[in-house]
C-alpha cells in the first residue's frame, strides 16, 4: 500500500497536477514518522501503523500558498478535513485527497511498541472516508466495534461516581498538566488566530497553571471551544506528554449533545448546522435537566 501511495504521489508531483504532497516522512526509527511536505521526490515517504498525525490540521498552513496539495487521509482524518472545510478554513479545490485504509495506530513509548493501539482506535467506528478524490487500500480498514456507544463507557463510569470522587479524579488528572498547549495546537477545529489563553489583552492569558483553578479553566475552555465541532479524532489525548485522558472531556460534550439535541457527528458532512449554532424552539431541554439527573 505504501508503494502504491508513493507511486501515485510521485506521478502527480511529476506531471504537475499537484504542487506538493502532504504525507508522513521516514524518521530515525521506524516508529517515528513525521508529517512532511514533499515537493520533488517522495522517496522518504512512509505509511505504516505509526503514522498517527492527523494531516488535516496541516492543510490550514498551506491554504494561502499557491497550488494544489495532495494529502493522504485516514478515515477518521477525513472528518476533521470536513469540519475545517465547513468552517471555511481550507478550500476543497486546493486539495487532492487520497483516502488511505487504516489498521489502527500503535502506541509508541521510547520508540518501542507498547502493544496497544491508541485509545480512539479501540473504539473506532469511523471506517469510511467522508471526503476523498481517490481511495487506496481502503479495504484494510477494520471494524472494531459495532456498538457506537462503546466510546462512552469510560464517561458513564465517571458519571456514576459521586461529585467528590469526580472532583478528585479530575484534580489528579489536571494537576499533571504542564500547559505545553500541545492538545490545543494539535486540534484541527481549535483554530483561533489568537487564543484567549495567549492574548495579553485579557487577563485570561496564562503561560503556566499557577493555581488549580487555572488548570481547570484551561481544560474546560479548551474542550468547550470545540464542543459541537470536535470530531473525536483523538489527537489531544495522543499528543499529551503527561497522558491526561483529554478525550474524556470532549466526548462528554459529544455524549451530552447526542442525548439532548440528537445524534450528531462533526465532520460527517459540511452542511448540517453544528449543535451549538442551532436550536430547536420547542424541544431543547432546559439547563435544569443537569440537576434533575440526580
Amino acid at each position: 500500500m505504501q508503494e502504491l501511495m508513493k507511486a501515485k504521489a510521485q506521478e502527480m508531483l511529476s506531471n504537475g497536477s499537484v504542487t506538493r504532497v502532504l504525507a508522513w516522512k521516514k524518521g530515525d526509527f521506524e516508529t517515528n514518522p513525521e508529517p512532511a511536505f514533499f515537493t520533488k521526490h517522495v522517496d522518504d515517504m512512509v505509511y505504516n501503523q505509526y503514522c498517527a498525525t492527523n494531516l488535516s490540521n496541516f492543510m490550514v498552513g498551506v491554504e494561502k500558498e499557491e497550488g494544489k496539495t495532495l494529502v493522504f487521509l485516514k478515515p477518521c482524518d477525513t472528518f476533521s478535513f470536513n469540519q475545517l472545510l465547513k468552517e471555511n478554513r481550507i478550500s476543497r479545490d486546493k486539495a487532492y485527497i487520497i483516502g488511505v485504509g487504516c489498521e489502527g495506530v500503535k502506541v509508541i513509548d521510547e520508540m518501542q511498541e507498547t502493544g496497544a493501539l491508541l485509545e480512539k482506535c479501540n473504539v473506532c467506528t469511523k471506517i469510511k472516508h467522508m471526503v476523498y478524490d481517490e481511495l487506496i487500500g481502503e479495504d484494510v480498514t477494520r471494524r472494531v466495534t459495532d456498538d457506537p456507544l462503546t466510546r462512552f463507557k469510560d464517561i458513564e463510569a465517571i458519571e456514576k461516581m459521586d461529585a467528590g470522587e469526580r472532583f478528585a479524579f479530575w484534580q489528579g488528572e489536571f494537576s499533571k498538566c504542564i500547559r505545553c498547549n500541545a492538545c490545543r495546537n494539535a486540534c484541527p477545529p481549535c483554530g483561533c488566530k489568537k487564543c484567549v489563553f495567549d492574548n495579553d489583552n485579557y487577563d485570561t492569558a496564562q503561560k503556566a497553571n499557577v493555581t488549580t483553578f487555572e488548570e481547570q479553566m484551561f481544560h474546560i475552555i479548551r474542550a468547550y471551544h470545540v464542543a459541537g465541532r470536535c470530531t473525536d479524532c483523538g489527537e489531544c489525548t495522543r499528543v499529551c506528554p503527561q497522558d491526561i485522558p483529554l478525550h474524556l472531556l470532549n466526548r462528554k460534550f459529544i455524549k451530552d449533545i447526542n442525548a439532548l439535541y440528537g445524534e450528531f457527528q462533526a465532520g460527517a458532512d459540511i452542511e448540517t448546522l453544528g449543535p451549538l449554532t442551532d436550536f430547536n424552539i420547542d424541544q431543547d431541554a432546559e439547563p435544569s435537566i443537569v440537576y434533575d439527573r440526580g
Binding site: G61, I178, C180, N181, A182, N185, A186, D203, K207, P241
Partner: peptide
C-alpha cells in the same frame, strides 16, 4: 514545517531555562 508550536519539548527539557515575568491582579 511539522512543528505545531506547542511547548512540549521546552517544558520537558532538563535545560530549557527561559522564563517570563507576569503580574496577576
Amino acid at each position: 514545517k511539522a512543528c505545531i508550536a506547542c511547548g512540549t519539548c521546552t517544558f520537558i527539557c532538563p535545560t530549557c531555562q527561559c522564563y517570563d515575568v507576569k503580574d496577576y491582579d
